[in-house]
């Protein structure tokens, strides 16, 4: 299991469309289970409504947890995607 934190810089936060894009991206890592944690709440990265339900805003920190598959590679490519898109 690997974890990393990411501060959202997108001015609208993880809203409907960005959340849709994020879930789409997470779907690509079929061998890993990826979850998001904000504060007390942890949700499955494949569940769009739950991800939207976190209500992540600009400047807030989200912890990503990656389990299974080539964890290092997933962390690397997912954080690169996040920097580019969120």
């Amino acid at each position: 299991m690997k974890e990393f934190e990411f501060v959202v810089t997108d001015p609208v936060g993880i809203h409907a469309r960005p959340a849709g894009n994020l879930v789409k991206e997470i779907k690509k890592y079929t061998d890993s289970k990826i979850s998001l944690t904000k504060g007390e709440k942890t949700v499955d990265g494949l569940r769009l409504m739950a991800v939207m339900g976190l209500g992540v805003k600009q400047g807030e920190t989200v912890k990503f947890t990656v389990e299974g598959g080539d964890e290092d590679a997933v962390v690397e490519s997912l954080s690169a995607w996040l920097k580019e898109n969120l």
């Binding site: 409907a16 959340a19 569940r47 769009l48």
Partner: peptide, 10 residues
Amino acid sequence: THQMMAEDLD
């Protein structure tokens, strides 16, 4: 996005 909502697991 609507499509993904329609097939959302929750």
